[in-house]
Design a protein around this nucleic acid. Structure first.
Lengths: 179, 179
DNA sequence: GCTGCTGGCTAACGTTGTTAGCCATGCTAG
DNA sequence: CTAGCATGGCTAACAACGTTAGCCAGCAGC
């Protein structure tokens, strides 16, 4: 399943990630990645089986970073839920192309380090107290982030209010339930 | 902006849509579409400027259908919000590839019939009573749908509960606000 | 009956992921 | 010290993609 990458492969993944983050998904090309390293595209295949493996490694990178951000945002915070939501939004807005790559297709779970997905989900799961509520909150947060990223909301300044309205809704239900 | 399509172009769009819906996005190829019509790929360009125009026409098709479904679901229903959510989920699960195409990138608004986007959004906007709440509810619904579609939730039967939990949350806030 | 538009066609280009097969370098075993 | 082999480059090439250029058959209208 998840092979440990050689150090050269790590450099390839880093170059790929840099390309993705600075120029977007359509720049993430085997030839462009090779160019960035001063070699030819076919040489990449000495280190990685295919492009999907490169993408999976970049995605794993992203999840690791996101998980760390979520953990540090929630540990000992006064308002852990608000803090988590902010960390989520920050991650997505600082790494929009990465966030899209991480979410827009089914996860290549076979090619991801075991436990990474669960680790990323853990903080929200802990805060909401139930898988069902965690899923609902995640859907809301992801929906807001991806609709914003995809320019789906009219630019009328109403979006911040939508965030508050949604958070309020979930907090209300959580309190009602725990009472 | 939005050109009226020739009847031949309509046939091309229909063939493209059929390919998309039955075989997924990667089957939506100029050559495959042409094949389905018994002609060659370059001939398509006599009727459509490029592939983006084909996609936009398919997307417009999808929005028109979705809008009609949402309107008929909410008009005079006993539980209009539940009915709308069901209509939304039904549309997405019956047309998963269409739904992805409609949502996964920024909308080609220039190439869509004017007013169509607003028409599709209207039922939810009416039910929630405020743009902010509508946006929050939309984010939740879209988030649930797309995460389900992308196989993001563990298959533990908890997802139905997540739907209920989210709907409950939004309904609670709406009631609190209107009281 | 000529003109010109409509809607096909073939050939081709540049880009994509990927494979096959060659070769230099350098480590290791005998 | 040398033979052999793994490592990691390379070029050439293929199939499929979107797209353009340019040709031509058929048919409508003056």
């Amino acid at each position: 399943m998840v092979e440990q990458l050689s150090s050269r492969a790590d450099e390839i993944v880093a170059a790929g990630r840099a390309l993705l983050e600075t120029e977007g998904a359509e720049a993430l090309t085997m030839r462009r990645v090779a160019d960035a390293l001063g070699i030819r595209a076919p040489s990449l295949y000495k280190h990685l089986p295919d492009k999907a493996a490169l993408e999976a490694a970049i995605i794993a990178d992203g999840f690791t970073e996101a998980a760390a951000a979520f953990e540090s945002a929630t540990s000992g915070a006064a308002d852990p839920m608000g803090s988590l939501v902010r960390a989520f939004r920050t991650f997505a807005s600082e790494h929009p192309h990465m966030y899209r790559l991480m979410t827009e297709r089914p996860l290549p779970r076979d090619r991801l380090p075991p436990g990474l997905e669960a680790r990323t989900a853990a903080p929200l799961l802990r805060l909401t107290g139930s898988p069902a509520r965690a899923r609902a909150a995640w859907a809301f947060i992801h929906g807001m982030v991806i609709l914003e990223l995809n320019d789906r909301f009219p630019p009328d300044g109403m979006t911040e209010e939508a965030w508050e309205s949604g958070i309020e809704a979930f907090v209300a239900v959580s309190h009602a339930d725990s009472a």
